[in-house]
């Protein structure tokens, strides 16, 4: 009953909102280029579906590759910073710099310097996504229990052994928390980058299509893009949550509660 309520209640609420929306538009004769009815968006989704999905695949590809690169570089940077405190003091401010700089303000420069649009999008999405992975992983690497550290010292563990058997397992839940945030940021970064990069090219990503449709006042199509991008974000979040749960379920508090 409670499990059913968890799914049914939000669903019913959403359906109710859509019905109110539809009825309000029809009763007040609001034109489509101001606010389209849900039915118009659904029709556009169906009609333009194949074209939009082709564009979505570009967006998803950039997002996933950027997330992968952010994971690899973020973890590598965090490990390096954790191993050498001097490196942390020297370089961490620059990681913060990447984080706090709105990527929209860097995008024009990257577009000038880099010719390949895919690489431009990748760089910008990476910049949006990398910081949570660096900072969370770094926090995790420093969170190993003091007694376990002493135990490793007592058995004369090498730096590598301590990293592999103590610091990395300790950091895993922190890293996964960062990854979940970065997943969303990678998508946001990709979308922002596509919008800044403009609408050139037939298949330059779904955000470009959204912008293009809105210029032409084709709001049902623009909103169909919006729906697809939101759905992508939700699926990405859910997938990372499942991954996190799979990796931690044997031992970590955060994953143990979910099973029962």
């Amino acid at each position: 009953m409670r499990a059913a309520g968890k799914v049914i209640l939000p669903f019913l609420f959403g359906a109710l909102l859509l019905i109110i929306w539809e009825v309000a538009i029809r009763l007040n004769h609001i034109p489509q280029f101001i606010l389209p009815a849900p039915s118009a968006i659904a029709i556009s989704l169906w009609k333009d579906g194949p074209d939009l999905l082709r564009n979505l695949s570009v967006t998803v590809e950039v997002t996933l590759v950027a997330l992968l690169l952010a994971t690899i570089t973020g973890v590598a940077i965090a490990v390096a910073l954790a191993q050498w405190p001097l490196a942390e003091r020297t370089f961490f401010p620059y990681a913060v710099f990447i984080q706090v700089t709105p990527i929209v303000t860097i995008a024009p420069f990257i577009i000038i310097w880099v010719e390949n649009i895919f690489v431009v999008l990748l760089i910008l999405a990476w910049m949006a996504a990398v910081f949570p992975i660096i900072s969370n992983t770094l926090l995790g690497l420093k969170s190993a229990s003091a007694n376990l550290r002493e135990l490793f010292r007592l058995y004369r563990a090498s730096r590598w052994q301590t990293l592999r058997r103590l610091l990395i397992p300790t950091a895993l839940p922190y890293f996964l928390g960062g990854l979940r945030i970065s997943g969303g940021l990678a998508l946001i970064g990709t979308v922002v980058a596509e919008m800044v990069a403009g609408t050139s090219g037939a298949q330059s990503g779904l955000a470009s299509r959204l912008l293009e449709a809105s210029y032409r006042l084709e709001l049902p199509r623009a909103m169909a893009c919006f729906v697809l991008l939101s759905a992508t974000g939700l699926i990405l979040y859910w997938a990372l949550k499942v991954l996190s749960h799979r990796l931690l379920r044997h031992w970590h508090e955060s994953a143990r509660g979910i099973e029962n």
């Binding site: 229990s145 895993l172 031992w251």
Partner: peptide
Amino acid sequence: MGFVFQDPTLMPWATALENVALPLRLN
């Protein structure tokens, strides 16, 4: 030598056997 701390000081991600085998692995 062996050292026993006030807390069990076990690695939560490792099984009892893996925890006990740690000194051997480090060696």
